[in-house]
Amino acid sequence: MNVPWAADDEPQTQPVVMNDDVVRVRQFARGLSQRCKLSLVDQTKFITAASELARNTLVYGGGGSCTAGLVRGRGRLGVAAVFEDFGPGIPDIELAMTDGWTSGGGLGLGLSGARRLVDEFALDTEAGRGTKVTVIKWAR
């Protein structure tokens, strides 16, 4: 997915390599979704999705980064986050997107759940090449 970053607002990149970073990504996502004036429910959904994806990056991707910022499209403001790792990648995307399926010890709700919480979701991965997940939530 080509992310339509807002021209006047540089996206910021954060490392996701330890437990604390997941908390920092949540706080970062909270700040952005407030600036974007998402409704309280949409803020909660976006922050929760970011938390799930940050944990995936850490646990399954072996660490990586999160780049997040405001986006603009069709006259609307939104917030986007891109999670990138150089871990083992996901060999079977369809399986990984299934509710309840997990390759680790989780609940298997990370990817599938995060997708339901946002407006746009793109998964770019290849076995052995890492994983990139992009999510966008638009202000209503």
Partner: peptide, 14 residues
């Protein structure tokens, strides 16, 4: 539990 948290949890699948 906040209402927004309840809505999000159910949508998440929990």
């Amino acid at each position: 539990m906040r209402p927004a948290v309840a809505i999000t949890l159910v949508e998440l699948g929990l």
